[in-house]
C-alpha cells in the first residue's frame, strides 16, 4: 500500500508535466501492479530533481533461461542502477518484475525467484513454525494444566477448529485430518494478516491465484484420495438413477469434483484480492479527487472522505482475513467429510 502511495507521489510530479494523462487508468494500473507479484519489495520512490530513486527491499532472483539453460542467482538490487541489465535481465520499475533485457518480456525464462509473495509466505512460515513449536513445548511442559501465555491465545482457535470444524463434519475420523485443517487455516490466516500490514508487506500473497491454487490442489487430493467406495459410486453411478440419466449426471458429478476445489481457490483469491483492491481504490480517491496533486483542496477533501472509509474497510478486511481462512477450512472439512462418510441410507435402499 505504501509503495502505491509513493508511486502515486511520483505521479504527482508526472501529472504536472503531462496533465492530459488519464488519471483513472494510471490508478487502475498501479492497483493491479500492487496486487500482482513482484521481484522486489518496493517501499517508496523518491523523485529528486530529474533523478528517480527507488527504495525497496531487494529480494533474491533465481532465473532459469529457457534457451541457454543458464541458471542466474542474484539480488534484485543488482538490477537497480544498470539500464542495460545484469546477466541478460533487467528490472521493469513499473511492475517491479524482472524482464528479459533484450525482448522486455517474461517469456524467455522461468522465474523461481523469492518474489515478494514468496518472501511473505516464508515470513509467515517462520512466524507460525516458531509459534507452534513454542506452544508445543508449553503443552508438553504443563501436561493437563490450564494454558499459559501465547498458548492461551491459540488454544481457543485450535479448540474451535476441533469442535466446530473437524468433529461435526468428519465424525470419528477427524483426528486424521486435523493437522491439515489446522495447518491450512493458520497458513491462510497468517498470509491474510501479513497482507494487511503496511510497509513490510501489504503483500497480496493469499490473494494470488498461484497460492490458492496450491492449497485447493491439496484439498482436492485429500478429498479424492480419501474418498470411499460410496463416494465414487455416487460420482460414476449414482444409485437409484436410470441408466440414461447417468450419461448426463456423471459428467456433472465429475465436473463437481474439480469445481468444488476450484471454487475454494477462486473464493480465497477473489476475497483477498478484492479487499486489497478496495483499500487501494479508496486510497486513490485522494489522488483522483486531487487530480494527481494539481488541486490541494481536492486532495484534502478526498482524504477527509477516504480515511474514515479506509478505517472501516481495513477493519472489515481484518474480519475477512479470519473468515476466509475459516471458510476455506470449513468447506475442506465438509468436502472431505462427504467423501469419507458411510452412506448407510444408500445401503439400506438397495
Amino acid at each position: 500500500m505504501m509503495s502505491f502511495v509513493s508511486k502515486a507521489n511520483t505521479e504527482i510530479v508526472k501529472g504536472n508535466e503531462d496533465k492530459k494523462e488519464d488519471v483513472a487508468s494510471e490508478v487502475v494500473e498501479h492497483i493491479m501492479n500492487h496486487v500482482a507479484d513482484a521481484n522486489e519489495n518496493h517501499i517508496a520512490t523518491i523523485k529528486d530533481g530529474e533523478q528517480e530513486k527507488h527504495i525497496s527491499l531487494p529480494l533474491p532472483c533465481i532465473l532459469y533461461n529457457k534457451t541457454t539453460g543458464k541458471l542466474s542467482v542474484f539480488l534484485s538490487s543488482k538490477l537497480h542502477h544498470s539500464e542495460e541489465g545484469y546477466e541478460g535481465y533487467k528490472m521493469d520499475h513499473h511492475t517491479s518484475r524482472v524482464v528479459d533485457a533484450v525482448t522486455g518480456t517474461r517469456d524467455t525464462f522461468y522465474d523461481f525467484s523469492i518474489t515478494k509473495n514468496v518472501f511473505n509466505m516464508l515470513l509467515g512460515f517462520l512466524i507460525l513454525t516458531v509459534i507452534f513449536f513454542v506452544i508445543k513445548v508449553s503443552y508438553v511442559k504443563n501436561v493437563g494444566k490450564a494454558p499459559k501465555g501465547i498458548q492461551s491465545f491459540f488454544e481457543p482457535i485450535i479448540q474451535f477448529l476441533i469442535d466446530e470444524v473437524a468433529k461435526p463434519n468428519l465424525g470419528t475420523q477427524y483426528e486424521k485430518f486435523l493437522p491439515y485443517l489446522i495447518c491450512v487455516f493458520f497458513f491462510i490466516l497468517i498470509n491474510n494478516l501479513l497482507g494487511l500490514v503496511p510497509f513490510i508487506g501489504g503483500i497480496n500473497s493469499s490473494g494470488n491465484i498461484s497460492f490458492t491454487l496450491v492449497l485447493a490442489m491439496c484439498s482436492l487430493l485429500l478429498i479424492n484420495l480419501n474418498g470411499n467406495k460410496h463416494y465414487w459410486q455416487h460420482i460414476f453411478a449414482m444409485p437409484g438413477v436410470p441408466k440414461w440419466v447417468l450419461i448426463i449426471l456423471t459428467p456433472i458429478e465429475l465436473l463437481g469434483v474439480i469445481l468444488k476445489p476450484a471454487v475454494l481457490m477462486l473464493r480465497l483469491f477473489g476475497n483477498i484480492t478484492g479487499g486489497h483492491i478496495a483499500v487501494l481504490a479508496i486510497v486513490s480517491l485522494i489522488f483522483i479527487m486531487g487530480k494527481m496533486g494539481t488541486t490541494i483542496g481536492g486532495a484534502t477533501a478526498g482524504g477527509a472522505i477516504a480515511i474514515p472509509i479506509l478505517l472501516f474497510v481495513n477493519a472489515m478486511e481484518l474480519f475477512v482475513a479470519f473468515l476466509q481462512a475459516y471458510v476455506f477450512t470449513l468447506l475442506t472439512a465438509i468436502f472431505i467429510g462427504a467423501a469419507i462418510e458411510d452412506h448407510h441410507h444408500a445401503e439400506e435402499k438397495h
Partner: peptide, 18 residues
C-alpha cells in the same frame, strides 16, 4: 494466470509447513 515459480514456492513452503 498461475505463475510457475510462485506455485513451486507455495507448494514447497506449504508442504514443508504441513
Amino acid at each position: 494466470t498461475p505463475d510457475l515459480g510462485l506455485v513451486f514456492w507455495t507448494t514447497l513452503v506449504f508442504l514443508t509447513f504441513w
